[in-house]
């Protein structure tokens, strides 16, 4: 069976689901962040596959922007985590419930 668009889409769905499971089940801020990155990568894979199988480059330009924004997001998010850790000495989401009464 030759590999077509649907193979890539199913792989992307599996990776996205793994990332979502990590975000929901894990309780460590950093691991949650890594799982978010995994979800972003799964979406990127789907975009590149669409771009290949419709024979144009717009999808790849979009992935370029996604990677750039993801890099900025990681930098800001990790700085926030470090600032939070400095104040509360924990990176565990169940102990970071200041906004909850």
């Amino acid at each position: 069976m030759t590999v077509g668009l649907e193979h890539y889409l199913v792989l992307s769905a599996i990776l996205f689901a793994l990332g979502l499971f990590g975000v929901i089940a894990r309780r460590n801020l950093l691991v949650i962040y890594m799982c978010l990155e995994l979800m972003l990568n799964a979406a990127n894979l789907a975009l590149v596959a669409f771009s290949r199988f419709t024979d144009n480059l717009h999808g790849q330009v979009f992935v370029f922007f996604v990677i750039t924004v993801a890099a900025a997001e990681v930098a800001v998010g990790l700085a926030l985590i470090v600032a939070l850790y400095r104040k509360r000495q924990t990176a565990h989401v169940e102990e970071l419930t200041t906004m909850k009464l």
Binding site: L5, E6, L9, S51, R52, F53, D55, N56
Partner: peptide, 12 residues
């Protein structure tokens, strides 16, 4: 979705 990438011209 379409399985065959009929004559791919665009390379990234």
């Amino acid at each position: 979705p379409g399985a065959e990438p009929a004559a791919v011209t665009a390379t990234g």
